[in-house]
Structures are given as structure tokens and as C-alpha cells.
């Protein structure tokens, strides 16, 4: 897919590199009642970085995403976005949820251009073209498959050119083949538009495949912060890929292994 700088006479979609949000999370805690979901989290994310967060269900990874989106407020600590403390709803962020959350009473195009004030139709059509659904703007949501619905949701998230894209297990409900297609699509669009991305998932392979960095959260703490330096697009069948995957899985499942003699890819490990 080509980067579209001019689209039907619009120049607003010229891709600004370094467009992504810079995030600094400081001593972030979140408690629901007496239950501590996140405990003193510290994390920095560079503009345009793709960070994937893995962990067991209930470990607090979705809560972190909701805090970044401003959907919940932290109990303690701050989130700095481009140097400013995040308060209330994060206007620079868009969230893509596991359920597509499309409005069944609006057609595909009207779902995508939801909340847009200017040139809503053209911008919506542009976003639909990006996700490969440009030929069905007038269909109803009920007429789409699960994978197509998530593509519409992705188009809706990207139409306003967010600086931060938050993905809350968006591919969790899709079949394996559709999921691979969506992963490629997300990666391509991220490479073109250079927003900062944070993907929460429980699929370690997906996390390694997409992330510049994989973060493991266990019981509210970041226990692994692992940069992935494999070249993109990543070969999920390669040995270094498999080794990274095993390293992360071992961490999550707390498995012990005899030390491997000279691994092909030694990834730096920052446990906090």
C-alpha cells in the first residue's frame, strides 16, 4: 500500500513522521476497591514505537490500556503524553476494542466517519480504502464478517489520524487466518502513518510479531521489558523468532529450562 499524501484533493493526510505520541508512565497504580490491579508501573514509549503488552487474563494489561486512553483514572501516579500530564479522556488516542463496537444502524462509511466534522465522507472513504474495504461503504454492519467488522473498526480508529493507537485484544475473536491478515494490515498502516501503538494481547506470537518491544505484566507489575530487534516483516517460522517466543512464554508460565548453549539471538532483558 502506498502512502497517500494527496487524496481526492485533500492534503490533510500527508503523513507527518514523528507524528506519534511520546509516553512516560510514572509510578502508575490503579486499584478497584481494595484490589490493586496495577502496582507502581514505570514505562517510557518513544514516538512511533510499537509496544505489545502480554500477560495472563486479569493481570492488569487492559487496565493499563484504559488508563492510557483516559477511560479510567489512575489511583496514583501520572501518565505524561508529549510532556503533559494526561487528564480525562485522551483526545489524541483512539481505541480499538475486542468487540468491534460498530453501530448496526449506521452504514459502514457512516461508522467510520463517526464524530468527524469536516469532509467526513471523503476521510471515511480514505480510511476504508486503507483497510481494503473501500468497495463496500454502503453495507450494513450485520452484513459483514467478524474480520471485516474489525477492519471497519480499524478504519474508524485511524480516520482521525491519532497519535496513539490503543489496541485492546482486537484480534482475539478472529480465526487464525483472518488474524494473520489483520496483523499484516496493522503493521503496514503503522509503518506508513507512524503513530505510537500499544497492543494488548494474550497471544505471545502476535506480540513478538508486531512489537518493537514486548512487555510482560504479571499481577500488576512489569516483569519483562524485551526489545525485539528482528527485521520486519517478521518470519514467524525463524529460529530467533521461536526463541524469543519461548523466552517470553517461559517468563509468563514460570517454566525452568536448562540453559541453552549460545542462543542465536541474545535479547537484552530488563526486568523491573
Amino acid at each position: 500500500m502506498m502512502t497517500q499524501i494527496e487524496y481526492q484533493g485533500m492534503s490533510i493526510h500527508s503523513v507527518k513522521y514523528e507524528n506519534g505520541a511520546r509516553l512516560k508512565i510514572q509510578n502508575l497504580s490503579k486499584a478497584f476497591g481494595d484490589f490493586q490491579v496495577l502496582k507502581d508501573i514505570n514505562l517510557e514509549v518513544s514516538p512511533g514505537e510499537f509496544v505489545t503488552v502480554v500477560g495472563k487474563s486479569g493481570c492488569g494489561k487492559s487496565t493499563l490500556l484504559r488508563l492510557l486512553g483516559g477511560l479510567d483514572q489512575p489511583t496514583q501516579g501520572q501518565i505524561y503524553q508529549n510532556g503533559q500530564v494526561l487528564q480525562g479522556l485522551n483526545r489524541d488516542a483512539r481505541v480499538m476494542f475486542q468487540d468491534s463496537r460498530l453501530l448496526p444502524w449506521r452504514r459502514v462509511l457512516d461508522n467510520v466517519s463517526l464524530g468527524l466534522k469536516h469532509q467526513a465522507q471523503q476521510q471515511g472513504q480514505w480510511a476504508l480504502d486503507q483497510v481494503g474495504l473501500g468497495d463496500r461503504p454502503q453495507q450494513w454492519i450485520m452484513q459483514l464478517s467478524g474480520g471485516q467488522r474489525q477492519r471497519v473498526a480499524l478504519a474508524r480508529a485511524l480516520v482521525s489520524q491519532p497519535r496513539l493507537l490503543l489496541l485492546d485484544e482486537p484480534l482475539g475473536a478472529l480465526d487464525a487466518l483472518t488474524r494473520i491478515g489483520m496483523q499484516n494490515l496493522i503493521e503496514t498502516l503503522w509503518q506508513e502513518q507512524r503513530f505510537t501503538a500499544l497492543l494488548v494481547t494474550h497471544d505471545v506470537e502476535e506480540a513478538v510479531c508486531l512489537g518493537d518491544r514486548v512487555i510482560v505484566i504479571e499481577e500488576g507489575n512489569i516483569t519483562l521489558n524485551l526489545p525485539i530487534t528482528l527485521p520486519r516483516p517478521r518470519d514467524t517460522a525463524s529460529v530467533p523468532f521461536a526463541e524469543l517466543k519461548v523466552q517470553i512464554l517461559d517468563r509468563i508460565l514460570k517454566r525452568q529450562r536448562p540453559p541453552v548453549s549460545e542462543p542465536a539471538y541474545t535479547a537484552p532483558l530488563f526486568a523491573t
Partner: peptide, 24 residues
């Protein structure tokens, strides 16, 4: 969840009513 989505996507209360609450 739809109402939350509407808020994330920047709909004001009046728009929430006309685009989500009433049609729903």
C-alpha cells in the same frame, strides 16, 4: 460499550443521544 466507544470517539452528549441512544 457502545456509549463508551462514542465518548472515546469524541461525541458530545447531544451527538451521543442522536447517533447512539435514540437509534439504539
Amino acid at each position: 460499550n457502545l456509549l463508551e466507544m462514542g465518548e472515546v470517539y469524541g461525541l458530545r452528549p447531544r451527538e451521543l443521544f442522536w447517533t447512539i441512544i435514540l437509534p439504539g
